[in-house]
Structure formats: structure tokens, C-alpha cells
Design a binder for these strands. Structure first.
Length: 646
RNA sequence: GCUGUUGUAGCUCAGGGGUAGAGCACUUCCUUGGUAAGGAAGAGGUCGAGGGUUCAAUUCCCUUCAACAGCUCCA
């Protein structure tokens, strides 16, 4: 038997006897790697560690630190769950059970059997017992006929439906213990490494995501190789609950919802408004520096405007319905997008190639009829404000403009403490071109330009098909917050379609009419969503320049209220925001209340301070900065009080 | 939009066929207190909305609205 040339991730090539397994390779590298190995990537495909490699291959061994390793681990955990469930509920029918971002789920049909927290615990217990048995996951190739026979006999209609859609010859079963499942794999070698198990929740989910189908029970769970990691994860979940922007938004009096106003329509309270307006000021200033011109457009527009833009055709049916005027049969739509309005601004006069690029920026509030079940705090609402702008430029300027926008977006992220971000190039779905408008050539060009611009700035990008807007491809920015959760924020889009639909033109150096290109962009995305993410990122402890209340002045007793008031007045003159807590309470109480409200600075004044004309500065969290003159306080933190700048 | 759960004071929640309770917040009084809750008294609710069953409904039933979780969707 000949040898296989195995290329390792570092580029080195090792020879192994043909038929070597991933485990064998891992062992040859190190004992430690063998212990931690979970799956292996073979020529770009993820395999089981004990599957034989018969040809030359480039491989990478995955451990818990790799997505490929985690997915195999959780996928195997889903099978372990199924095995435990079947042991306790014979006859249960299984849907699908994939690994997900955090753990796994399995869709099951338990008939009318009630299934709640107690049942989850029971299954969890059985899973732990079964994991200890350390059964191997055994892969077998089966023919379609065999597969159908097996599940017909077992009586599992969902699996039969799945097999029906599969190609004969590419069907595999996996078995561990007494449990056999239709599965493509890959799996970890044995159940043993699954040491820490938590079944998290039960929810309804339609078979194959179609509401016409039967609703199955979807059981979510997560597993880890170590108990400690599970505990950390559960702690993180608790922490996420504490940081939930809906909870903090209420506690910190930032925003509210009212049934009377209508669902998904946020009311910004005074403190939330300060926060929001600070963000706006920050962005306005950055945009002026970047050459944008602010514009303002109305909240409604003639239906015809959106027919022209294509939005009506695409989203009209599912939107807020047109507003009809009493007299004439005019129809208006609540503005769902700012771009058509900006196109009309562009058209107010003839444009020369020398005028371009023109950049119109607007904090434009738009209204979209989101499905009721989709509404979620500030992250998904029906009326929201985009930090929108449209750049009209010549085709030869697209890339350079795109790069400038990337710089702006990254500046925003940096200023707000989002250090971890990735960018997604959202492309069109090549299988379903009818979803999009415009011809292939322009799409290809736009997709290329986005990728080039991203590369130029050294952005780490992932391309995802089918995520484009209907008029053009996008570069979407995802940030990771302090708890490691990913959020989609800013977006930049190249658009060749709207200029065509609105017949936008400019006169070129050749004295001929040309069509400009539009770039849509919103670094925050929407202020609502951005504020939500920011709240959860910093747990309500906003950077000083954003804090709705930057200080509180806490007199030790009412004897010092006058002095305290002077302190407040002086700071307000320096545009520093804060309030006087002159309640008839002890200072300990006032400190506690300011701490709970997450006020960054507590300025304590008593006899000593009043005498010396000083303040005692306590930072949120308890740090004592000692006593100082007011002017020293202001100059010490003046940088933090003001807007970050480019 | 679909399925499930929930809806009681400003907030967090208890209760239950005979029209309601706690803690915090609020108001007043006492207290003038030096770095995370000083004390006392008081006020506050069509028990989400509409309908039904009943002598009697906040409680049981139906409808509806909203929130929450999940599914589908997202210019």
C-alpha cells in the first residue's frame, strides 16, 4: 500500500500509510493534540477523526478552540441528547438536530407529551450517564433503500422525508450505543469528552420552518468538555440578562414603549435623548470633516416616489399602507427609506463631473411595518432613525469613496469601544437572481469593488451569498460586544440601480451625459439599534462623553446645598451635565443612588470642601479621586467629557 | 404573521369565585448625617381591554391587545 502525503496547516508535508486516520496524524504530532482533537478538516471538508484518509490531503486538526471542533462536539451532543430522549420516551420522532452558534438543538415530535423544565433535567441526567459509557460514534454508508427501510421500520416520518431528498450513495448513518441517526457528520470519536451538559429551553418550531407544517418541540442545549466552561457560559447568560438593554433602558430611564402609542414605536425619555443626541453630534461632526452635506427630507413621500425606486413593488404589500388624502386621490407612504428623497435632491440642478462626489447626510427617521413577532426592544422597531447618507460619485470614484466610508465606520467603532469587528461582504444569491434588480454586469462590478475596497483597508471579510439588498451588494459590519456576542451594525452599499431608475446624470469632461453611482451607508445602522447594542456592550456604563448625567453633586447635609448648587452651575457652564442631589438623606444613601443610576462622577461636598472651595471626587464603582479644585477636575477630565474626534 | 407563556400599585412580584397585598420608589414629618439603603406616618390599583358563565368574576370560559421565548421575515 502506498503512502499518503499529508500537508499540515504550517505547510509542512508528512507521509503516512494510506488509510491513516485523523487521530493517527494527531498522535504523531503530539499526545496533547491527540487528547484535544475533535475533528479534522480534510481538503476543506470536515471529517471524523477516525475516518481513513486514503489519498494525499491538506489537513487541519480541530480542537475545542476551532469552530469546526466545537460544531462536531455539539453535533455529537445533539445525538447524545436524542439517544437519551429516546431511552426515556420510546417512539419519539426526530426532525433535525444541528449544532448552532452556541450549542445545539433537536426538533422532536413528542406528540402531546408535556415537556418542561423537569423533563429537561431528567433527560440531562440520562445524557450524563450515557456520555460516561463513552460509546463510539460509528459511521456507516447506507444505500437509500436501506435508509428508507430502517426509518420505515422505526416509524420516523421526518427522517423518511429527509432521506427522500438525498442522493443515493451519499447517505450515511451514525450510531452510538443503541441510537442510530441519519447524519452527514462529522462527529467526535466517542461520547466521553462530553462532560458538562445543560439543556436550556424548549420552544416550538415548524417542521422545515414552514408554518403549514406540524409544530415540533425544539429543545436547545449546550455542552462543554469541562464543567468550568459550562459554568462560565451560564454566568455569561446571567450577565447578558443583567445587561439587557430593555431592562437597563427602563431602569436608567432612557426610553419607553406605550401600548397607546403603538408597538415598536419607541419613546425617547430625556436621558435617552441626551445619549442619542450626543451620538448624533459626534456623527455630524465626523461627517462634516469627511465632506458630507447635511440635508433634511419629510417623513412621508408620494407613493410614486417609491414606485420609481422599486421599494413599493418589493415591500409595498408588507408595509404600512398608503395614506390617502381626502380630496384628490393622492397616495403617500410613510418614508421607508431616505434614498429616493436624496435622489430628488440630486436632481434639483444639473451636475458636473467636477461636482462629484456629492455626499448627502441625514438623520432620517423611517417607518417599516415589521412583523409583530419580530419587534424586540430597540433592536427591531417600526420607526427608527438611520444615520443615513448617500454618496453620488463617478464610476471611477467608487472605490476611493468606499474606502473613505470604511475609514469612517472604523473610526466610529473605535470611538465607542468596539474593538472586535468583522465585515461581511453580502452578495447576491446566484440561484435566485429574480430577487434582485439590475443586470449581471453591474452587479459583478459592484461586488468586485466592495471586495477590493475592503482588501485595501486590510479588513477581514467573509463573503455570504444571498444577503445583498435587492438593488446592490453590501459590506455589513459585525461587532462583538463585551460578552462576545455578535451584532450587525453599520452597512455600506454600492448601488447602480437607483441612479438608473431616477435617471440621475452628470455632465462629463467630454460634455456627454453620464450616470453617477450611489453609495448608501449608515455607520450606526439605526440609532435605536446602535444604542441598544451600546447599552449591552457597556452594561449601561457609558463613556463619559455619552453619559446622560456625567456627575452628581452630593452635599453632606443641607447646610452645604448652596455651595453644591454653585458647583453644579459652574460645571454646567463648561457644558458638563449633571444634577444636585439635595434630598434630605445621608451621603451614603445619595452615593448608593448615584451608583445605581451609573453616574460616572459623584462630587461630595461638606464642610471641608466648602471651606477650601474644593470637591471630593468619587468615580462610579467606588474609586476615590480625592479632593480637588473644580477647575482641576474639569481640566483633568476635559478630554473624556468632549466628543472624540478624528 | 404563526405557536407557546405571561399580563395585579411607578418598579419587582405574592395572592385568589365574596371588588386586593409586600418590598422598593413617591408625599409629609423627625433626623443634619463624610463615601452603596437613618426613622416614622401617609398616599397610591376599573387586578391589560371587551364579552360570557354565576346571586357574585380580578380569579372560571371566549375574544382582543401587548410583552416575552421560538419559528418565518428584514429596503
Amino acid at each position: 500500500m502506498s503512502n499518503s502525503k499529508i500537508t499540515l496547516p504550517d505547510g509542512s508535508v508528512k507521509e503516512f500509510p494510506a488509510g491513516v486516520t485523523g487521530m493517527g496524524i494527531a498522535k504523531s504530532i503530539s499526545e496533547g493534540l491527540m487528547r484535544n482533537a475533535l475533528s479534522i478538516e480534510v481538503n476543506g471538508e470536515i471529517w471524523d477523526l477516525n475516518r481513513s484518509i486514503t489519498a494525499d490531503a491538506a489537513i487541519k486538526i480541530f480542537t475545542w478552540n476551532d469552530k469546526g471542533g466545537k460544531y462536531a462536539f455539539w453535533h455529537s451532543s445533539a445525538h447524545l441528547f436524542a439517544e437519551a430522549l429516546e431511552a426515556l420516551y420510546p417512539g419519539v420522532k426526530f426532525g433535525i438536530g444541528p449544532p448552532i452558534e452556541n450549542g445545539f438543538y433537536y426538533d422532536v415530535d413528542l406528540g402531546d407529551t408535556p415537556f418542561g423544565d423537569e423533563e429537561l433535567l431528567a433527560v440531562e441526567k440520562r445524557m450524563i450517564e450515557l456520555a460516561k459509557v463513552n460509546n463510539a460514534f460509528v459511521r456507516t454508508d447506507v444505500s437509500k433503500k436501506e435508509a428508507l427501510e430502517y426509518f420505515t421500520k422505526k416509524g420516523d416520518p421526518y427522517k423518511l422525508e429527509l432521506i427522500d431528498g438525498l442522493q443515493d450513495g451519499s447517505i450515511t448513518f451514525y450510531q452510538q450505543g443503541n441510537f442510530v441517526d441519519l447524519c452527514r457528520g462529522p462527529h467526535i470519536p466517542t461520547t466521553g469528552p462530553i462532560k458538562a451538559i445543560k439543556l436550556l429551553s424548549v420552544a416550538g418550531a415548524y417542521w422545515r420552518g414552514d408554518e403549514k407544517n406540524k409544530m415540533l418541540k425544539r429543545i436547545y442545549g449546550i455542552t462543554f468538555p469541562k464543567q468550568k466552561e459550562l459554568e462560565e457560559y451560564l454566568f455569561m447568560l446571567e450577565e447578558a440578562k443583567k445587561r439587557d438593554h430593555r431592562k437597563l433602558g427602563k431602569e436608567l430611564e432612557l426610553f419607553a414603549f406605550s401600548e397607546k402609542v403603538g408597538m415598536g414605536l419607541p419613546l425617547w425619555l430625556p436621558k435617552g435623548t441626551v445619549l442619542r443626541e450626543r451620538l448624533e453630534q459626534f456623527m455630524r461632526r465626523a461627517q462634516v470633516k469627511a465632506g458630507y452635506d447635511p440635508v433634511v427630507t419629510p417623513h412621508i413621500g408620494s407613493k410614486q416616489l417609491y414606485v420609481t425606486s422599486g421599494h413599493y413593488e418589493k415591500y409595498g404589500k408588507d408595509s404600512f399602507q398608503p395614506i390617502h388624502t381626502p380630496d384628490e386621490s393622492e397616495e403617500f407612504l410613510l418614508k421607508p427609506m431616505n434614498c429616493p428623497h436624496h435622489c430628488e435632491i440630486y436632481k434639483t440642478k444639473p451636475r458636473s463631473y467636477k461636482d462629484l462626489p456629492i455626499r448627502y447626510a441625514e438623520f432620517g427617521t423611517v417607518y417599516r411595518y415589521e412583523q409583530s413577532g419580530e419587534l424586540h426592544g430597540l433592536t427591531r422597531v417600526r420607526g427608527f432613525t438611520q444615520d443615513d447618507a448617500h454618496i453620488f460619485c463617478r464610476p471611477d470614484q467608487v472605490k476611493q469613496e468606499f474606502v473613505k466610508v470604511i475609514d469612517l465606520v472604523l473610526f466610529v467603532f473605535k470611538s465607542l469601544g468596539f474593538e472586535n469587528y468583522t465585515a461581511q461582504v453580502s452578495l447576491r444569491d446566484p440561484e435566485n437572481k429574480a430577487k434582485y434588480i439590475g443586470d449581471d454586469e453591474l452587479w459583478d462590478k459592484a461586488e468586485r469593488e466592495i471586495q477590493e475596497a475592503a482588501d485595501e483597508r486590510g479588513l477581514k471579510t467573509v463573503a455570504v451569498k444571498g444577503e445583498a439588498a435587492f438593488y446592490g451588494p453590501k459590506l455589513d459590519f459585525m461587532v462583538k460586544d463585551a460578552l462576545g456576542r455578535s451584532w450587525q451594525l453599520g452597512t455600506i452599499q454600492v448601488d447602480y440601480q437607483l441612479p438608473q431608475r431616477f435617471e440621475l446624470e452628470y455632465v462629463g469632461a467630454d460634455n456627454q451625459k453620464h450616470r453617477p453611482v450611489m453609495i448608501h451607508r449608515a455607520p450606526f445602522g439605526s440609532l435605536e439599534r446602535f444604542v441598544a447594542v451600546l447599552i449591552e456592550h457597556c452594561a449601561g456604563n457609558f463613556p463619559l462623553w455619552l453619559a446622560p448625567e456625567q456627575f452628581s453633586v452630593l452635599p453632606i447635609s443641607e447646610k452645604f446645598n448652596d455651595y453644591a448648587q454653585k458647583v453644579v452651575d459652574t460645571l454646567k457652564e463648561s457644558d458638563i451635565r449633571g444634577f444636585l442631589d439635595d434630598r434630605d438623606e445621608k451621603v451614603g444613601r445619595k452615593i448608593r443612588d448615584s451608583e445605581v443610576k451609573k453616574v460616572p462622577f459623584m462630587l461630595i461636598v461638606g464642610e471641608k470642601e466648602a471651606m477650601e472651595g474644593k470637591i471630593s471626587v468619587r468615580r462610579h464603582g467606588g474609586e476615590d479621586k480625592g479632593s480637588m479644585f473644580l477647575t482641576d477636575f474639569v481640566s483633568a477630565f476635559s478630554k473624556e467629557f468632549g466628543l472624540p474626534s478624528l
